[in-house]
Design a protein around this nucleic acid. Structure first.
Lengths: 343, 343
DNA sequence: CCGGTGGCGGCAATCGTTTGCCATCTTTTG
DNA sequence: CAAAAGATGGCAAACGATTGCCGCCACCGG
């Protein structure tokens, strides 16, 4: 006999066969009664269901996965579980997955593309699909992996891979207008990680605004997107002489705020700071951060919906579901932005 | 034929049999070569390994789980994924699990004991064990579940269930002494959720300090442990006339800080506030929060180690591993505490 | 009265591994 | 040199479900 049953308390877990024996039907009938109700007589089905309840039967997901090929597990890959941005993603996906009866496997890729690809490849067999929040993988490899296993990305636009995109670039427009209306002309973009797709998109959006107003915005960075990069970023920022900045994300912005405070640069009197995402903490840091509020949880939910709808569909291409869902953001003005300082 | 293989791109996933065929040995030998290297001749093993690499073989975890009874998956149950306290837990467990080759299943119990018990029961078959961070279950039921499936708790002391305990109560002593030395005599404890075990432990510790100094501390609450409870808690706090408080956790403390600010009560000039846990944000809220710094990630890592060591051990009771690991905390003094106001 | 049809249930194969047991061959030992 | 012991590999039975296919029975229409 292989490994002893989990319980350790002697009783072997209840299987479909126990129910079959208890009700005097075949195991196959039990399986059908439980999964495919229409296929079996109402009376026997009820007897079976009663027995199942009685014996506290719980189906074995490995066994089910083995024979059906579906594991009812979805992986959610984030580049760093401690980044509060992902809290929203985790929560949103968790909610929707639970509602659909799927398990959520959380994977931290530690910001490296190799680990990401490797984990994905290794778990391929035990997953029905995966959601990639902030993938660091090159487009090509991403497309290849999407052939291996159903994928949905968040904030990453790759041809052939469905995705939920938070339209922060559009918000950048609002943020820039906000700063311009306050009189700022020298605005800097504080860049996040180099391989990050949203990072490029945000800078492009800023650049477009600059062009429209016949201005030139500067860009500094790249910086890793943690609070730890705050000091370096803040110092670089001060060097540019800009009176305002838009920062890749709130985490970095908060780090900058802290450093500016240390250096006795007043925010917003001396310099205005705008973040992106509106993460936990953006409202109670000091000063409270003006930021682009992103519907992060919603993005998680949408990503799950897209993935599940792709799984249900029996390999039909289905033109009904969109391949890209764009989610709007809005500017939330708090205390970190103000009028341009007079020279 | 049941459900089509995942790939959708035609190629059936590589199995152990493909390797067997490629190398001219039996499937069982392949299995042994890969899992039990000593059991098979070095030369053939190498041939097998080469073939496995060549074919990019990845074992099917469901199949493995089915026959071996072990899934190599561990659930981590938290009561609310958005509570930053759990970020540390999630990260700590994630690290250690990944290192040991286990998958992490994250489950949000939404703060209800029923859901917690139900999820645990339903997933029992597909898990090797579970880590309960902040269980809301009664001791008795917890002990029962521990018979079903290997369990380790964090911050919860139940006879027979191993646990990693963060010794916040000891820290409470430090915090209280800190406040006493600043001249405070009227100190309140702002209570967290009623069913929370650490909550009681913290209050008991405070009570003990009060007794030692022949003082009486007041207790207000219970409050749900979110920032949303801040206003109610702050208002109740002001009613007590206390000049300082120790709050169940940082999240609630930050909520209180915000409300006090709204009501133009100055911190720490009018009232001092101490939190617990030192979560993300405690250092950059306003004013920065004096708090008990808890080794949360470490708790997660320790919990995983305890669990895994229990799993490895072939059902031996093993007196070597401790059943309780106590982790020390320390007081981190920041800006939210100061001398007692003069009347 | 007979063939067709549909409802219902059982049989058995299958999913991909692990593992107990046995067969063979090689070594060691007394 | 025979017998015991060890090394190595194969066979086949699990593990617990799902599902294609077949058989039985009842009912229906012509």
């Amino acid at each position: 006999m292989p490994a002893l049953p989990l319980g350790a308390d002697g009783k072997r877990p209840v299987t479909i066969n126990d129910i079959a024996a208890a009700t005097g039907v075949a195991a196959s009938t039990v399986s059908r009664a439980l999964n495919n109700p229409g296929r079996v007589n109402a009376a026997t089905r009820e007897r079976i269901e009663a027995a199942a309840r009685e014996l506290r039967y719980v189906p074995s997901s490995p066994a089910r996965a083995l024979s059906s090929g579906r594991t009812r597990a979805i992986a959610v890959l984030v580049s760093d579980v401690t980044n509060p941005f992902y809290f929203g993603v985790i929560r949103g996906t968790q909610q929707q997955l639970k509602a659909a009866g799927y398990a959520q496997l959380l994977i931290d890729t530690e910001d490296t593309g190799e680990l990401e690809a490797e984990m994905l490849h290794n778990m391929r067999r035990s997953l029905d699909g995966a959601i990639l929040a902030a993938s660091r993988l090159p487009d090509k490899e991403l497309a290849r992996l999407a052939g291996d296993i159903p994928l949905v990305t968040i904030n990453r636009n790759v041809r052939g891979v469905p995705s939920a995109i938070i339209d922060t670039p559009a918000g950048i427009g609002q943020a820039a207008e906000h700063l311009l209306s306050l009189g700022h002309r020298d605005i800097a973009y504080v860049s996040g990680p180099q391989r990050s797709w949203p990072n490029e998109a945000r800078w492009n959006a800023m650049h477009a605004v600059a062009d429209r107003h016949r201005l030139t915005f500067t860009r500094i960075g790249p910086f890793p997107s943690g609070r730890g990069s705050g000091p370096a970023a803040a110092d670089a920022l001060l060097n540019t002489g800009a009176t305002a900045c838009i920062v890749f994300n709130d985490l970095l912005a908060i780090g900058i705020l802290q450093r500016l405070r240390e250096r006795h640069v007043r925010v917003p009197e001396d310099i205005s700071v705008v973040g992106c995402d509106d993460i936990f903490g953006a409202d109670f840091c000091h000063p409270p951060l003006t930021t682009l509020t992103a519907p992060i949880e919603q993005a998680g939910r949408v990503a799950v919906s897209m993935l599940l709808s792709r799984l249900d569909r029996t390999a039909a291409p289905s033109p009904t579901t969109r391949q890209q869902v764009m989610l709007p953001v809005h500017l939330t003005v708090r205390g970190s932005t103000g009028p341009v300082p007079r020279r």
